[in-house]
Computed example of a mutant assay.
Amino acid sequence: MAKVLLIEDDSETAEAIAAGLTDRGFEVDWASNGIEGLNKARASQPDVVILDRQLPGMDGLDVIWSLRQDRMRKPVLVLSALTGVEDRVRGLRTGGDDYLTKPFALVELAARLEALLRRPAETRETVLRVGALELDLIERTVRRGDRQITLLPRELRLLEYMMRRSGQSLTRAMLLKDVWNYNFVPDTNLVDVHMGRLRHKVDGPGETPMIYSVRGVGFILRETASNPHAPATSSLSGCG
């Protein structure tokens, strides 16, 4: 039985959601404001969080940001009466995993929760290593050999994603979905810009490149450039 934390200030809406999800086999806990919801999320570690975008006490996006700062990786579904594209994008960029606009059908809400819960949990290593590159997930620090690398939060998330999938070609669509939480592919060079900045930090002067572009596919991070079985690639010198 999956544990759901529902953070919703409207009691009638909360009761309807809780009843509908309980009937479908979920265990539902309810918080009526952002501060209470944040405290409950930290204390109970639910399997999934549903929260309203506009909450008293603490805005829903601030709740998500605080949970992500706590390194809580459980999925978060945002409910909102705000239907604009910019509102949806802001909710996803803050750290939400899905966004459902009001009014909605309970059957769709339940289906979205089931989809979020099916996503495989990432492994629990505290330090990731690919060759001389090391990322400490607790301290949020990066080193390549003896060299300390300073990264911005989004760059850290991007590098973590790539290190967990080292040697795997990653498409822009994959990166937009899993790193930026887009559920669609916008017409943007966002990935290329961030990838270029990340490469310039990871691949220092005189060092063997680790981040490459894969022509017609996307990008790859690998330990060395000398693997004879590696896919044909070209460097990112034109990015950023």
Rank of each mutant, 00 (worst) to 15 (best):
D52S: 08
R71E: 12
A115T: 14
G206T: 06
V48Y: 01
W65I: 08
M195H: 04
T224Y: 06
S11E: 15
Q54G: 02
R222V: 08
V191W: 00
P75R: 09
E134I: 06
P205I: 02
A230Y: 00
L79V: 10
P231D: 11
P205C: 01
V89G: 00
G37F: 06
V179N: 05
V179T: 06
M162A: 08
G37D: 06
R199F: 01
L109S: 01
W180K: 06
D62P: 00
L133D: 03
S213Q: 08
E108I: 12
G218T: 04
V28K: 11
R90P: 05
F26H: 09
R144K: 10
L159R: 09
L109E: 01
S66D: 13
S66L: 07
V127G: 10
T141L: 07
E36P: 01
R119G: 00
G91I: 05
D29V: 08
Y212G: 02
V214K: 13
M210N: 10
G204K: 05
W30V: 15
A230W: 09
T208V: 12
G96R: 04
Q168T: 13
P46T: 12
L158E: 09
T150A: 08
D178C: 03
N183Q: 15
F184G: 03
R222Y: 07
T94R: 11
L77R: 10
I64S: 03
A173W: 00
P46L: 12
R157T: 13
G34V: 07
Y182V: 10
T126H: 08
L152E: 15
R124D: 13
E122I: 06
L82Y: 05
I35Q: 13
T141H: 04
G91N: 10
I7L: 04
P231A: 14
S11K: 14
Q45A: 11
L152G: 13
T141C: 04
Y161M: 09
D59G: 12
D178N: 15
E139Q: 15
Q148P: 04
L236T: 14
E114M: 07
E122T: 12
L67S: 06
V214A: 02
E15M: 05
Y182H: 15
S235G: 09
R112C: 02
R73F: 01
S226C: 12
V49A: 03
D52L: 07
R157K: 15
R199Y: 07
A14Y: 03
